[in-house]
Nucleic acid binder design. Structure first.
Length: 852
RNA sequence: GCCGAGGUGGCGGAAUGGCAGACGCGCUAGCUUCAGGAGCUAGUACUCGCAAGGGUGUAGGGGUUCAAAUCCCCUCCUCGGCACCA
């Protein structure tokens, strides 16, 4: 074999990411490569969004893990001919700014803007293709005036209201939405303090109006666990409301209707007592004088208790008999009425019919207080004798053969039938009706904090609550500096802000001093990206019609029942106010995993386990860091951070670099370098290379589409290893080789944008051409003819154990293959003289010979 | 307690009924370089064997199948969500 002609060429430049990456970032910005023309409808649109960040001031590796694969996805779609819109912004209102302000005596606005500047710089170092023209910063009046404007529309539509009720109260952060109280110990999601209940007048958004629509995920490609979490959070229960009538006694005339909600109307005959929550309105009236002292003491104790104590499931049941009785509407039975704190005031009607035989909690209560337990449901396998025997635990299952027992005329009916019949009977007699209850509550959205959107209403002595007219928006957040978070609205301390005039009568009035929950900001921001400078409306409906819903949204699963549910609610509410067309915000959702600290804990400054990406970028370059994060494992998995192995990615890019720029180079350490593999001539080698390249292209295209970035990188490494094998041989520099280099660069471009654009332009320059950016180049098409294989290796098993492999032509008949296989010495040996019973052909992919 | 996701070499992981461990890290040996915490080549699940080759193996146990990491049943462990919602 003749030594290929090695042209005399200049020394090959080394791959130095630090030298090339900033240059490319600058060039892309100059070219406006990522400035999306939203009016361009010549191509299909692709709205790609990653959850925007709170500007806490520094970007850690977790931000890279979230953002760089998303960027690769956007670049891939752009190369496939779609008009990609990938905006970015900052969720800039919120407590950390306020806390930092208290601690460091810096104004939250100053602190926030400084952090945003830092983050912009760090974000640019990723080399991501964001459209910075659409940037949104939520703490600026240009943004939050639209929070106020939308709020006023909600107010007009009856979707926002003010009400007094017991609310979750954090000593540091004031009121919280229900979603913002976490864990068994009922702590604040932000500061971790224990949350109390307080009776307060607060602003709510009517999320419950959309409960059923929020349960409908038709047309949404969302991860099943997220849909399930939302479904459980909404907690729809079908059942019935039943009115029990209180009985007369020596202290009261009776005749009051005590309404309960139950999911088991089929167990109505098993109701042996009733329980009201201590806060129930009828408690005073139904308290018999003989029980008054005890009841008063219990009610007082319950109101003092924290949520933690009341909600603990481990705690033994407590309760007090009121002294009164109610009449069961189905059988006229007199049953005692108790109060107990295991019945919640805020769910259903705040009172229950207790069916101890078929409810665990009622069972425990009945046992403790010696109340009767009557079985009314039993499976067909339970004998009559067993039905009569006392239960040792509540039977709560819904068995397929469940029938009613001890239920008067209904006895013997299937439980399902009894459910329907009893509801129908109650409805007919006006003693009850079918009803649905939700666990979901309306969204408590007012906060006693400074750094948020002022709620645009005033209170006038004469006119009461008056909305601020649109033409007076925004209600600007004053420069107030007294924001010591005692739970008292800081805006109250600013007399100049608070005292105003009534828009209706011109008389003295006071502004609302609560601000909005910052989740309001993130509940519609993707609309604002579409028309960030619009002065008349929050979003231009014609642009929204073209660009919504968001095609792909990516973010963490921790937002399952907060941000993602609020965003869906807002979209529906805004649609009902005529502001947008779409009723769902995000068509496709992907939850990437979370990068934890090396200790396996969440990355946080206080734990000191935060990995700073700047160091890694300085040492290895952004492309290596990007690829490494994609290569670590499946994107939805995340895991503890470890930089071990990043060197492998650096080596890979280095090999790509030298393969592209120095195809004729040989490796001194490899005796075979520069020679073709044994038995392969130049023609065969080129064919093999083309087959590998086009098969890789087919696979990699699929992997980008399905966000399987880890295997995508692995397949590109495999191809690069093959190129390495042919480097320096006679096929280096042939058209097949050049095609391979061109395609590997194109395939790598979305993931490693800098090195690929650099090599792309150098290769063009070497040909005497000027290349346009690789990122403006079309994604290549698979040459199916080249990718098709002529031969295939077929594994041969005997009784399921691998014994041999045969190389055969693709399309060989099963008969020929069988003959060939049975003649193989290893197969003959494995058969050991036995006659094959059966030969399984798995579609030409495998042969299995079955013997006894 | 209920619901969900998961458990594969020394490590990250690949394979969703058909060759377990792709790709990478680490490790071992050799080569190469003025030098390197650089580069290249080969080997690397466990186990018996000089080797050829054999046996075992995907948390544990059972099952379905010609064939199981993959499907079914039971048990254990890890992570996430919910917290008396009638």
């Amino acid at each position: 074999m003749s030594e290929p002609e090695r042209p005399e060429h200049a020394r090959i430049d080394r791959y130095e990411p630090a030298a090339i990456e900033p240059l490319w970032q600058q060039r892309w910005a100059e070219l406006g490569l990522y400035d999306t023309n939203l009016a361009d409808d010549s191509r299909p649109k692709y709205y790609l969004l990653t959850m925007y960040d709170y500007p806490s001031g520094d970007l850690h590796i977790g931000h890279w893990y979230v953002k760089t694969p998303t960027d690769a996805l956007g670049r891939f779609h752009r190369m496939r001919g779609e008009n990609v819109f990938m905006p970015i912004g900052f969720d800039a209102f919120g407590l950390p700014a306020e806390n930092a302000a208290i601690k460091n005596k810096v104004h939250p606005h100053t602190w926030t803007l400084k952090n945003i500047d830092t983050m912009r710089r760090q974000l640019r170092s990723m080399g991501a293709g964001w459209d910075w023209n659409a940037e949104v910063v939520t703490c600026e009046p240009e943004y939050y005036r639209w929070n106020q404007w939308i709020f006023l529309r909600f107010l007009e539509a009856g979707l926002a209201y003010r009400a007094k009720s017991p609310v979750d109260w954090c000593p540091n952060d004031g009121t919280l939405a229900r979603e913002q109280v976490e864990g068994t110990d009922r702590h604040c999601w932000r500061c971790g303090a224990r949350v109390e209940k307080r009776e307060l007048e607060q602003w709510y958004l009517r999320t419950t109006k959309y409960a059923d629509e929020l349960l409908d995920f038709t047309g949404l490609e969302w991860p099943e666990p997220i849909k399930l979490m939302q479904t459980n959070w909404i907690g729809r229960s079908e059942g019935a409301e039943v009115d029990f009538t209180t009985a007369a006694d020596d202290a009261q005339p009776g005749g009051d209707q005590l309404r309960v909600f139950t999911t088991r109307p089929d167990t109505l005959y098993g109701a042996t007592f009733m329980v009201m929550s201590p806060e129930h309105a009828l408690v005073p009236k139904l308290t018999h004088p003989s029980q008054a002292t005890e009841i008063a003491a219990y009610v007082a104790a319950a109101s003092r208790e924290t949520e933690i104590e009341r909600m603990s499931t481990e705690r033994e049941k407590t309760g007090v008999f009121t002294g009164s009785y109610a009449v069961n509407p189905i059988n006229g039975e007199r049953i005692p009425i108790w109060i107990a704190d295991y019945v919640l005031a805020g769910y259903g009607t705040g009172a229950i019919m207790a069916v101890p035989a078929h409810d665990e909690r009622d069972f425990a209560f009945a046992q403790k207080f010696g109340l009767p337990i009557r079985r009314v449901i039993a499976g067909s396998e339970v004998s009559d004798a067993e039905v009569a025997a006392p239960l040792t635990q509540a039977y709560i299952a819904h068995g397929a053969t469940d029938r009613m027992v001890n239920s008067g005329p209904h006895s013997g009916k299937p439980a399902k039938q009894g459910f329907a019949d009893i509801v129908a009977m109650l409805e007919k007699e006006g003693r009850g009706k079918a009803a649905i209850n939700y666990r979901l509550r309306d969204w408590l959205m007012s906060r006693q904090r400074y750094w948020g959107t002022p709620i645009p209403v005033v209170y006038c002595d004469k006119d009461g609550m008056v909305p601020v007219p649109d033409d007076q928006l925004p209600v600007r957040l004053p420069e107030t500096v007294d924001y010591a978070g005692s739970g008292n609205s800081p805006l109250k301390s600013d007399a100049a802000f608070m005292n105003t005039t009534c828009p209706q009568c011109g008389g003295p009035a006071q502004r609302e001093t609560d601000t909005m929950d910052t989740f309001i900001d993130s509940s519609w921001y993707w609309f604002r990206y579409l028309s960030p400078a619009d002065k008349n409306l929050p979003v231009d409906r014609s642009i929204e019609a073209r660009w919504c819903p968001v095609d792909q949204y990516t973010g963490g699963a921790e937002h399952a029942v907060m941000h993602l549910l609020y965003a869906r609610f807002f979209t529906k509410a805004m649609a009902d106010c005529g502001l947008v067309h779409e009723r769902e915000p995000f068509k496709r959702l992907f939850n990437q995993g979370q990068i934890l600290g090396a200790d396996g804990e969440r990355m946080s400054k206080s734990r000191g386990n935060v990995q700073d990406p700047d160091e890694l970028v300085a040492r290895y370059g952004a492309d290596t860091v990007r690829l490494f994060l994609m290569f670590m494992g499946p994107w939805d998995q995340g895991g503890p951070w470890s930089p071990t192995g990043i060197g492998g990615i650096a080596r890979f890019l280095n090999r790509v670099w030298y393969s592209a720029l120095d195809p004729h180079g040989v490796d001194a350490g490899d005796p075979e370098s520069g020679t073709l593999p044994a038995g392969q001539d130049a023609a065969a080698a080129q064919e093999a290379l083309r087959a590998a390249v086009h098969r890789t292209l087919r696979t990699v295209t699929e992997e980008y589409s399905e966000k399987r970035f880890n295997t995508m990188v692995a397949h590109l490494m495999e191809l690069s290893n093959l190129l390495q094998r042919y480097r320096g041989t006679e096929i280096a520099g042939t058209p097949a080789w050049d095609e391979a280099i061109r395609l590997i660069l194109l395939m790598l471009a979305p993931a490693a944008p800098h090195i690929t654009d650099e090599l792309w332009s150098r290769l063009a320059a070497a040909r005497g051409e000027t290349a346009s950016s690789i990122h403006a180049t079309a994604w290549p098409a698979v040459d199916e003819a080249a990718a098709t294989e002529n031969e295939r290796e077929v594994p041969v098993q005997v009784n399921g154990k691998l014994r041999d492999k045969v190389q055969v032509a693709v399309g060989i008949s099963e008969a020929d293959l069988e003959k060939l296989v049975l003649a193989r010495p290893k197969v003959v040996a494995a058969l050991d003289g036995k006659t094959p019973l059966k030969v399984i052909h798995a579609g030409g992919r495998l042969v299995n010979i079955v013997v006894r």
